[in-house]
Each structure stands twice: as structure tokens, then as C-alpha cells.
Design a protein around this nucleic acid. Structure first.
Lengths: 140, 140
DNA sequence: TCTTGACTTGGACAAAGTCCAATGTAGGAT
DNA sequence: ATCCTACATTGGACTTTGTCCAAGTCAAGA
């Protein structure tokens, strides 16, 4: 599931494979932490010092449009980019310690919103965050 | 459920009742759309032309601390303020323009998470964000 | 009505992101 | 292998969203 897949797909769409794009993909392919655009830029600049912020923003935006990377805005601050975009997953968050687990709810989540509650929107996606106490916090 | 309740509570906490705060509360008391801080400022300025942005930001922040208003950050853009903080509801967000509506999905949302997906958590709440294009953006 | 501490103001500042004209270059064409 | 050119990159100006602060203003209790 490395980013070389992503690079192949990009090339397959007629995208030019530039050093900048390669480096951004490499950064995203690293840890399973979700970086902000500026963090991606900083890390990319370690590999390719002259890369510009604009290019990082462009490239991230392109990957998001491609559906290869997920844009996550958790707190109203900078968006973060989640390279693990292939399997839809939701989050289970501990209200006390903040631990996050990925979960896979059952059923069609979109179906829960009746037509008369859609107000003319073309609804296409749904994000769910479950909250509660993790085993450790519930015990303590 | 008007904002006069809110104003009473604010006064009860020893908060000064100023024209600015009254006007911000009035704006929030409108329909079930959630405004950004700048939108609140624009609407407040129709009622009280000289109100400053700083005051609107301060007042919204105060209401959020009070728990009377919910701060919602759905995209990486401006936060939106949800005056309907007392009743459980979910959100329907336009992917293009960021407009938010309150919605009330059917069924038990918590039930969608099977026991084997709870990892020992005591799950007690769920937040759902539906995304799609609003009628205006879909047309344009 | 006076006083005072809390509130408001406008502007400077900062962070996150977009836009654009000029420049550079990947990759197909020759 | 080299040339072309359409597409990518760059840096800086600009926008949006939000914070901070010193100075002025005012709500409300004494």
C-alpha cells in the first residue's frame, strides 16, 4: 500500500511525475500520523529544499481530488492529510484520554438520513464519531 | 427557547448586558442555519452598525464557554456557531460552500456500532456529519 | 450621580490558504 | 539525442479567519 501505487495512478492519469510530487508522496507514505500542509512542506523541504508551499498545497489538493488522500479538519485549525484513505472508516474517541480507534460500523450510514431531512442536498458522504470511555479510563 | 433565556443566564452570571451582546444573541436566535463569525458580524452590524469584529468574536467565545452555543468546525474554513446546543441533532454540510443545516436522522445511531467494534469502550454519544452539495451549489 | 472594573474598539499582527505572472521542465515528437 | 510546449513550479502578493492589545467607553452597584 505504498505511495508508489499512488505515483503509478497519477502517471496513469497523464500526470507528470515531478521531483516535487514524488517527495510529497514520500512524506505522506511515512508514519501513520496526519500532517498539516505546513508540516508536509517542512518534511518535504528536508528532501527537496527548494520546494514551495504553493506546490505542496497544489499536490495535496490533487491527491485529495484523486481520492488517494483524505482531508481531515478536526479542530478548526489547519487541515490534516490522511494517506490511509482507501477503506472508509469511522472514529471511536475516548472522552477522557482522547485515544482514537478506527471502527467499521454496520449498515448503510447514509440511509439513516430520510429524504425529508435532506433539504435538497445531494448527500454523498457521512462521517461518524463515536464517543465514550475507553476500558482503561472506565476502570480508573 | 429564545435567546432571552441566554441573556438571562448571562446576566445571572454577573455578565454585563450590553447592546453588542444583545445583538449577537438576536442574530443567533434566527433559523437553523449556522453562521460563521463574520456572518454574525455582518448581521449584527445591520442592527448595530458600529459593532466591531473583535466584540463579535469575544461574545461568541463567551457563549461557547457557557455551553449555550456550539462551535462547529466542519471544514478547514471558518468555524460556525450553532445556537441549538440543547437538543441532540446532527449536521448536514455543503462540501462546496460550507453551509450547515441541523438534521435529525432516523433510528438509533449508536446501534450502528456492533459490540465487537466497541473495543471495550462504554460508548455514550455519537456525532454524525453528512456531506454533499446544497441545492444552490449543485445548480451552480 | 459617581466610580470602577469590565466591555468595546480599531488596528496591528498572525496563521492558513489561494492566486498569479514569470520561469522551469517532463515527456512526447522529431 | 534534442527540441517543443503544455503543464508544473515558484515566490510573493493577497485573502480569510482569527487573536491581541492599549486606549476609550459604559453598565450597574454604592
Amino acid at each position: 500500500m505504498g505511495m508508489s501505487d499512488l505515483l503509478d495512478r497519477l502517471r496513469g492519469r497523464g500526470w507528470r511525475l515531478t521531483a516535487q510530487r514524488r517527495v510529497v508522496a514520500e512524506v505522506l507514505d511515512g508514519d501513520h500520523v496526519h500532517y498539516t500542509a505546513d508540516e508536509v512542506h517542512a518534511k518535504a523541504a528536508e528532501l527537496l529544499p527548494e520546494i514551495s508551499r504553493a506546490t505542496v498545497y497544489n499536490t495535496l489538493g490533487e491527491m485529495v481530488s484523486l481520492g488517494e488522500v483524505l482531508e481531515v479538519s478536526t479542530d478548526g485549525r489547519a487541515k490534516r492529510y490522511d494517506p490511509n484513505a482507501h477503506h472508509a472508516h469511522q472514529h471511536l474517541v475516548c472522552s477522557r484520554c482522547g485515544t482514537i480507534r478506527d471502527v467499521h460500523p454496520s449498515g448503510d450510514l447514509l440511509a439513516g438520513l430520510p429524504a425529508e431531512q435532506r433539504f435538497g442536498f445531494q448527500v454523498s458522504a457521512v462521517e461518524v464519531t463515536y464517543r465514550g470511555l475507553c476500558p482503561g479510563c472506565a476502570a480508573g
